[in-house]
Amino acid sequence: MRYSICYTPSARDPLSLAAASWLGRNVYSGEPVEHPALPGFGLHDLAFHTALPRRSGFHACLKAPFALHEEASEAQLLRELMHFAGIVEPFTLSGLEVARLGDFCALTLAQPSNQLERVASLVVQNFDRFRAPLSDAEIERMAPERLSAPQFANLYRWGDPHVLDEYRFYMPLTGPVAMSQRDRIHQAAATYFAPVLQGSVVFSNLALFVEREPGAPLVVHSLHPMGRVSARKIA
């Protein structure tokens, strides 16, 4: 069993519903969802391009998947996450857009958000005591020889190279896309998600995701609303 702390909208949020259809799986129930009918796309075409994010589910990672430390329990993790969420104030994700990040498409922010970066950093640091150390094999799978010096340091300190100053918020919508298809896929995703991105998207909860066995699809274990204890703000 591995756990991950992420952002994802609530189950009935229009963005969650749109993403579940786009990816072909509901990250709350784990059940398949029918893909939307897109002009010029067959269902198998969209299914192929969304296979990787379908397994991981619609989310932006804050704390990468980790096994529990031998001295920690799921109950302790849940209590700490509930407390933490309650003292962090919600905020608006301004400028959320469909973008191309290298060879894949994702929802990301047009401009950096100081509030988001602070919450992401706090999650990484506050919950690291629950994380079991990475094995040598797990470190090797992350190809440490390809990392920058700060990323290498993050991998060994926090179990994830892309945290703190190296963090970027994104919610994957595709896996790697061939260069000849990138403009087509990007335009289709941008058009499809445009209606649900017109209004405000609020970062108002933290989600605990679980991977019940190696390679299993990630699902939401529990959703923790933010801002319940307003007298003790830390973000």
Rank of each mutant, 00 (worst) to 15 (best):
194 A>K: 09
128 D>H: 15
77 L>M: 02
190 A>H: 14
77 L>V: 00
159 G>V: 02
151 Q>A: 13
79 R>K: 10
168 R>S: 13
101 L>W: 03
70 E>C: 10
176 P>S: 11
128 D>E: 13
151 Q>W: 04
63 K>F: 00
134 L>D: 08
102 G>W: 01
181 Q>H: 10
85 A>G: 02
147 L>Q: 05
162 H>T: 04
130 F>Q: 08
171 M>C: 10
136 D>G: 03
119 V>K: 13
168 R>I: 06
104 F>R: 07
101 L>P: 05
129 R>F: 06
76 Q>D: 08
126 N>T: 07
106 A>P: 12
123 V>Q: 10
193 F>L: 08
176 P>M: 00
88 V>N: 15
77 L>D: 03
91 F>E: 03
76 Q>Y: 04
67 A>V: 04
66 F>H: 07
189 A>R: 04
163 V>C: 12
141 R>F: 02
170 Y>Q: 05
64 A>Y: 11
179 M>K: 14
132 A>D: 10
92 T>N: 11
141 R>E: 15
143 A>K: 14
164 L>T: 08
114 N>A: 09
149 A>N: 05
171 M>Q: 14
86 G>V: 00
189 A>Q: 05
95 G>Y: 05
185 I>L: 15
131 R>S: 10
63 K>G: 01
98 V>K: 07
141 R>H: 07
94 S>A: 04
180 S>M: 13
158 W>M: 04
68 L>F: 09
112 P>G: 04
112 P>R: 09
145 E>N: 13
154 N>T: 03
139 I>A: 09
165 D>F: 02
92 T>F: 11
107 L>C: 03
74 E>F: 00
151 Q>D: 01
